[in-house]
Design a protein around this nucleic acid. Structure first.
Length: 936
DNA sequence: ACGCTCACG
DNA sequence: GACGTACGTGAGCGTA
């Protein structure tokens, strides 16, 4: 039945990759019901194929057809030019598993499906088009890719499948200003930013076409470049000749490939209904199954509704057995494990060290696990001490040389085809980074749990193991002891260490096996892949770099604070009538309320806490300050005490003696909303609100020749609220760049903007913040120190003026009640397990549910900015140092500060693109100076 | 170990 | 109708 391809035949060549990307971007992220596999792009692809098949009739119908795909990312063009397509964004993680499915779909339609290693789809298309023309047939290329336009000509046309528009020679001329045979010349000159083809700088398509039409072709143009009258253009062509010639080779398609199939293999075949419908049923596409079944005149297959997901995880068949773990003591044994890793393609890794502070930690041993129950520990720096009467520092026997071990493991840990699995990988990645090993790619069970279970529990290994594996890991406490007598891990006997350490890797691997498929089912794969995992190396870099803190500045401030505190203390004791510990809230309460007989302005005494002591918090003392002088002194003293103990004193202890810098640690999975948390020390709460406190920021300095640059989002949470709740008045105010709190005040209190007073604005500001926190009359009243009825009146009025806010709050709480979680705009899930409980917790849960999407979306935005930042600023002498929720801090060579601000601002302001199109644009304020105080 | 207080967004 | 509340964090100190 095969007919020889020749005159009268019509070959259609479908650009498969273009179909896939179109389908992916056009469709919402659909997932297969039964297991959460993303299938949106497959669905779109199938629809496009179906539409193509339906339309392929009449005089112009194809007799032969093929869908052509790209295979792999490395082609012969990369060998010519390593930057080719280098700035392509990585394939979205949800798309990756769908790629093979689009091949399956093509075959299910019984359409030829072709790809060739090392070549682009475009080359195959070029070759086939060439062959078809030589055989006397016609060709239609189904694509709108301009790179294929060079093929158009006598008997070859393109068809834009979306616009259903044919592109012939004239169409190409319209696009390029030249006919198809000179398209590559124009492309060589104009370059292509998408494919990273350099071209000639400063020359676009218009100029290129002009030049080519004047000189005939590229070769003549380059030969006679000296004749060009415009000096700038002339220089460009002369100076960049090699680059232009390279560009031409890059854009020139290969139409002489040797293919292992022929045109005759592409003859149109009718689909086999059973095969096609089976595929569609497997994908669980109900609608399109029905439509295609109708077309084919057969019954649509029944697609079962998926069984409800089982509540409990399958019981792990392999029991934990601490005695089964191997202690690896030499290269031969290690090699066996490395072989097993390559066989598995993945490995769980855990490091044991002498400190929780990576910057001061020494590696003691490494554990590996390749499958449940199959784990080992490699001791590297254990001391014999524990077995030695005098606790000697001698090295324990039977350990591999560390350098030799690392030399063997480095290729594995850096191998792009071996997935390294960890629990809190940032820690281990930093340990390895300091030893010259760049661990990648990684998966992190802590972050997987965070993406799925934020709000349910913490994500430490012990919690996860007990909850999801039903196994309580060996506790570290008995091994290390506690308090003054605690030892470091290198003093733990090797036999004990093997059991403990290898088990951690075993637990990690089992958690990974359980969590990996659950990410899809929970619809948080994208969150994990785009907001959690890529942040690990970014934060590791920031933490290792640290920020320079000037010890002398802090020390001087400490002394000044101490002096002032001593003076205040004297005054306070005198006023109290007796000496007491000013820092003790309990003693202070007794002085104020029992001995001095003070009472709150309303006549009552403040509430007593769980310990039975009167509350002496700042709000209480603030109220008392209106009737007595002592409380004000206490407030002043407390402020200084705080600044001294938490900041000017403690911060000095955090300066790393080796680097002279302070290295905080960020918890990625600490805050349930998606925010980061900073610890050891916390650099996200360095004072700024009081003048005295703000001066502490003067101690955070740039290295010589550098400056500190600070960029912070302006009102990001209110902007997000305006978008999510759809508040037009707020959106407009942000668009017009007017003072948002003043606008709110004007709207609420009917005060024209030009008559706004600071006090009215202050009240409106409090309301705006209150809304973000899940406003209540009580809370607002307390914050503004106004009667509760007044506060309630404000809130009522606010809701009246901005009805969308109330709607958002009601909708969000209803969503949470129904689903048990709320979501950010980027799909981050925050579980709200207490939302349906009764009692006072209900109020908390409600407000938290209202706040979480707003705070969480802002957190997602800055995470995206941070993830993109290293690449964006790679060319600058700049380092990202700190994140403070809506602010990023950099250290940069003074000469490049302005460049950095331009680039970093751009990254931050566009961080939500393209995943989320915000109705309100994000705005970033910037500052620079020798220290953080001047930069902020 | 826990509660109180207070620093930040 | 009463209850008790602003959202999210981490650190240092006093008290048990």
């Amino acid at each position: 039945m095969t007919t020889q391809f020749g005159k009268g035949c019509h070959l259609h060549l479908i650009d498969g990759s273009a179909f896939i990307f179109r389908a992916y971007h056009a469709l919402p992220p659909l997932t297969r019901k039964s297991d959460g596999l993303p299938v949106g792009a497959v669905s779109g692809f199938v629809n496009m194929l179906q539409r193509y098949v339906e339309n392929n009739s009449g005089a112009d119908a194809a007799t032969h057809v093929a869908v052509i795909f790209d295979k792999g990312s490395h082609t012969f063009r990369n060998d010519m030019y390593d930057q080719y397509k280098a700035n392509r964004e990585a394939m979205p993680e949800e798309l990756r598993p769908q790629i093979p499915l689009t091949r399956d779909a093509t075959r299910a339609f019984n359409i030829a499906c072709e790809e060739v290693e090392g070549f682009e789809a475009d080359d195959i298309i070029a070759t086939l088009a060439h062959q078809a023309r030589r055989a006397g047939g016609r060709v239609t290329i189904v694509s709108s890719d301009k790179d294929l336009m060079q093929l158009v000509g006598d008997g070859v046309e393109m068809l834009d499948p979306m616009k259903n528009k044919r592109i012939d020679r004239d169409g190409v001329f319209e696009k390029f200003g030249v006919f198809p045979d000179r398209v590559v010349d124009v492309q060589a000159l104009a370059g292509d930013s998408v494919d990273n083809v350099p071209g000639a700088p400063g020359i676009g398509i218009k100029t290129a076409a002009l030049l080519i039409n004047e000189f005939g072709d590229l070769e003549s143009l380059l030969e006679r470049a000296g004749e060009i009258t415009q000096p700038k253009r002339r220089e460009t062509l002369v100076n960049h000749r090699a680059q232009i010639e390279l560009s031409k080779r890059l854009v020139q398609l290969d139409c002489d490939m040797v293919l292992d199939f022929g045109l005759d293999d592409l003859e149109i075949r009718l689909p086999d209904p059973d095969t096609l419908l089976a595929f569609l049923a497997q994908m669980e596409f109900r609608t399109v199954s029905k439509r295609i079944a109708d077309k084919l005149g057969v019954a649509a297959p029944v697609i079962e509704a998926p069984a409800p997901a089982t509540e409990t995880a399958p019981i792990e068949a392999v029991p934990f057995d601490a005695d089964s773990y191997e202690c690896v003591r030499d290269a031969t044994a290690l090699q066996v494990w490395i072989d097993r890793i390559y066989e598995a393609g993945h490995v769980a890794v855990d490091t044991e060290t002498t400190s929780l502070d990576e910057m001061r930690a020494d590696l003691v041993g490494i554990s590996l696990c390749v499958a449940a129950g199959q784990a080992c520990y490699i001791p590297l720096a254990h001391k014999a001490g524990a077995d030695d009467l005098f606790g000697s520092d001698a090295r324990a026997e039977g350990q591999m040389d560390m350098a030799a071990c690392l030399a063997m493991l480095k290729p594995v840990l850096e191998d792009a085809s071996i997935l390294k699995i960890g629990q809190n990988m940032k820690y281990d990645a930093k340990i390895f980074a300091l030893l010259g090993i760049a661990v990648a790619p990684i998966d992190d069970t802590m972050l997987m749990s965070y993406a799925m279970h934020a709000g349910l529990h913490n994500h430490g290994m012990d919690t996860l193991s007990e909850r999801y594996l039903g196994h309580i890991p060996i506790p570290i406490k008995p091994l290390l002891g506690s308090g003054k007598s605690a030892i470091t891990f290198d003093r733990v006997p090797v036999d004990d260490a093997v059991k403990y350490a290898a088990e951690d890797a075993d637990v990690t691997l089992r958690l990974w096996q359980m969590f990996k498929p659950q990410l899809h089912q929970s619809r948080v794969t994208t969150v994990y892949e785009t907001l959690e995992r890529p942040l690990v190396p970014v934060l590791a870099q920031m933490e290792m770099h640290g920020i320079k803190v000037d010890r002398d500045t802090l020390s001087r401030m400490s002394n000044a604070f101490a002096q002032k505190m001593a003076g205040l203390e004297d005054e306070i004791q005198k006023m109290a009538g007796r000496p007491f510990n000013v820092g003790s809230p309990k003693q202070l309460g007794e002085i104020l309320f029992d001995e001095l007989g003070l009472a709150m302005p309303d006549g009552k005494l403040p509430a007593k806490g769980k310990t039975g002591a009167y509350s002496t918090g700042a709000d209480v003392l603030e109220d008392l300050a209106t009737i007595h002088d002592l409380p004000r002194r206490i407030l002043d003293w407390r402020q200084l005490a705080k600044l001294k103990s938490t900041y000017t004193d403690a911060l000095q202890d955090h300066i790393n003696p080796d680097t002279g810098r302070v290295h905080t640690s960020y918890s990625i999975a600490g805050a349930i909303t998606g925010r980061l948390a900073s610890t050891d020390p916390n650099l996200q709460n360095i004072p700024v609100r009081s003048d005295e406190g703000r001066r502490i920021r003067e101690a955070f300095v740039a290295a010589p020749g550098n400056v500190i640059v600070s960029l912070d989002y302006s009102q990001i949470e209110l902007r997000i609220l305006a978008h999510i709740a759809g508040i037009d008045a707020l959106k407009q105010a942000f668009l017009d760049g007017i003072d948002i709190h003043a606008m709110t005040a004007s709207e609420m209190f009917d005060v024209p903007l030009d008559q706004m007073t600071p006090d009215i604005r202050r009240q409106a500001k409090a309301i705006n913040f209150g809304v973000i926190y899940g406003i209540s009359g009580f809370g607002l009243a307390r914050n503004l120190r106004i009667p509760r009825s007044d506060a309630q009146g404000f809130i009522d009025r606010y809701f009246e003026r901005f009805p969308g806010i109330r709607q958002y709050m009601d909708d969000t709480v209803a969503f949470a009640r129904d689903r048990g979680y709320v979501q950010t705009l980027f799909g981050r899930r925050i579980n709200t397990p207490e939302i349906n409980t009764k009692g006072p917790q209900a109020g908390f849960a409600k407000r938290a549910a209202i706040n979480a999407p707003i705070q969480g979306t802002a957190a997602d935005v800055i995470r995206r900015a941070m993830i993109r930042m290293p690449k964006a600023i790679a060319g600058l002498p700049a380092k990202m140092l700190l994140q403070v929720h809506d602010e990023l801090l950099f250290e940069v060579d003074a000469t490049a500060a302005d460049d950095l601000i331009g680039i970093a601002r751009q990254v931050m302001e566009t961080a939500s693109d393209p995943a989320v199109k915000l109705d309100v644009k994000l705005s970033v304020d910037a500052g620079q100076g020798p220290n953080w105080a001047t930069a902020h």
